[in-house]
Design a protein around this nucleic acid. Structure first.
Lengths: 340, 340
DNA sequence: TAGCGCAACGTTACGGGTAACTCAACAACT
DNA sequence: AGTTGTTGAGTTACCCGTAACGTTGCGCTA
């Protein structure tokens, strides 16, 4: 025990007085050895503290690795943390491991990470988002491994897509708010250097609002993270710039909570003075006395499904390439009740 | 391009009309080749879409891998997500990758994960918590790689410890609340099968409260996750069981928020009717109109420091084995102002 | 012009494990 | 006794990249 150097299979074999191959057979439970031999090998495995070297097994070529590369924009956003949790837990039940990559919402970071992680021969990749750099796309195609793109549903994915239709989710919220009689609506979100799901939601939202005769009078895209405080000061900025906004749609719930708190601090009554709507349905909503108008998505389930689909794909089961997780509009009580 | 099979170095070499070794030298920028040769090799690398196989490099024995195994209890808890973000971002700047393991707060899960991840020859491990199963401890010792234990500071770590003194942080809060005249205090938290940091905080808290002549009259340990809703119904249970509690200390801020919302719903005035204190200082606090009494810890910094220490250790720099990140008590306004 | 140094490149061996094959010993038949 | 089959175990080749060493051919010096 407690050797400084790694214990190899040959050392175990030698100590047990058998060949490497026999030891290998015992460890893989392959059969073709006597009970006596098995006992001798296992005794040495125990005594020497042998741990198999999976690198060598993968290297030998016959088996794939149990790595799954998982790219996530950032973990400060609670919803992505939930997605990752869903992925890793589910992968774990299949004996697979996540190799994490935080891309900070940039395609360049993603590309760099993809290049590195592919050099480790992962069994597959799970990527957040449908947009990738040209080089990344080429590498993914050449890699010959399953790629699951999550978050925004993609009707023509590289391989498989798991997510929701963000355009529709924005559209539904726009239609809902318009149906309540809101005409002049504002938007508070953040901007990134790539087209992303939040933009899709905004597009859908605008289309519905304008289709109903309303207008998204002001779109504020902050250069900041999509968290509580930017929601707070973004609301301040928006209201300072545009007086007659009746309702604000936020990129996500965290920002909406920030807005809610700003209004509370300024003595603005929600929903009488102004309506507030978010997206994502954060866990904290479960304890708020007032339900935030939002859109529920099961982020954990999204992650789990992505992992399941990946596993199915790796075991060569037939898999459809488009998985809609669905969403549910939450009317809430931070917007007014009926047309007015 | 777009081969189905992996492109190997020999294929590149053959296509370029040189030996494997020459191609290898070119790719590693090692020198010992003509400009003409370099150009021919690189042209084939490009044309064939060759990606190096790091498994083979590590396997060749001279270099270690760039994997760092990172075990985290769960990501539903926002603070751990922040820690992980700090770790992975910092590792990324050094060209290292996190291999994630969610242990769900159980030593058995951790042990299983350690066994698996060690078989991938990681360069090091970052583990949350100071308690590990006996087998895990033995494997860690035999592995001969750096191990950084984070979260609760450990004066005699396996290798290196990065975190804070949870006992002290609980003690400080206990002393603070006692100094405000609170005598009968309740606690709401969750229970796990292992001694953990939250327990340490509670121990320190009780010691301080009792040392000041007060009493922790009721300790509620729910069999649930330490999130918003358990904080909500835990508060209900605690108040139903014990009428004369003046103040409640929660395992973390999420539970404290749940408690805050319960009180608001029941018309209980905080802090006049009851005091509320949490731990961890969640981001959402930045937008609340009332500051939650809590304890600030820079979770992101904790993760970053853990990664930095790991990198220093791997480059054989001298590293002290105990890194205190520190904490800061936040008086807040959810407890009363002065003794009374 | 032999002798030497060096740039440029090739050859071999190795690492840990596994597939495919070979081989020896022995039992159960005809 | 000779044939066949079964069982247990060893041998060889291979996966991909790199260290260590060997080889070639050129230019320069004495």
């Amino acid at each position: 025990m407690s050797k400084n150097k790694k214990v190899s299979l040959s050392q175990v074999a030698q100590a047990a007085g058998v060949s490497k191959m026999t030891a290998s057979r015992v460890l893989r439970d392959e059969g073709g050895y006597s009970e006596d031999t098995r006992a001798r090998v296992m005794a040495q495995v125990d005594a020497l503290g042998y741990l198999p070297n999976r690198l060598a097994t993968v290297f030998a070529g016959d088996q794939g690795s149990t790595f799954i590369g998982v790219s996530i924009p950032d973990l400060g956003n609670e919803v992505f943390a939930q997605v990752l949790e869903g992925i890793d837990r589910k992968l774990g039940t299949f004996g697979y491991q996540s190799v994490l990559g935080l891309t900070q919402h940039t395609l360049q970071e993603e590309e760099n990470w993809i290049r590195t992680v592919l050099s480790w021969q992962p069994a597959g990749l799970i990527l957040t988002g449908r947009y990738h750099s040209a080089r990344a796309t080429e590498m993914l195609r050449n890699a010959g491994i399953p790629v699951v793109e999550i978050w925004d549903l993609n009707s023509s994915p590289l391989d498989i897509s798991v997510g929701i239709n963000h355009f529709d989710s924005g559209f539904d919220m726009g239609r809902y708010l318009a149906s309540l009689g809101y005409g002049k609506i504002g938007y508070v979100g953040t901007s990134h250097d790539t087209a992303n799901a939040a933009t899709e939601r905004l597009n859908g939202f605008c289309k519905a609002v304008e289709g109903a005769g309303g207008a998204v009078v002001k779109q504020l895209c902050l250069h900041d993270t999509a968290t509580y405080y930017p929601g707070f000061y973004g609301t301040e900025q928006l209201l300072a710039a545009t007086k007659d906004v009746e309702c604000i749609y936020y990129q996500n719930d965290a920002m909406a909570f920030g807005g809610l708190q700003y209004c509370a601090g300024k003595g603005l009554n929600v929903p009488n003075d102004i309506g507030i709507a978010g997206w994502g349905d954060l866990p904290i909503a479960s304890v708020m006395n007032r339900r935030l108008t939002s859109c529920h998505v099961s982020h954990l389930k999204l992650g789990q499904r992505a992992a399941e689909v990946m596993m199915a794909r790796l075991s060569e089961e037939p898999v459809t390439n488009c998985h809609d997780i669905g969403f549910r509009l939450i009317p809430g009580s931070t917007v007014r009740n009926s047309g007015g």
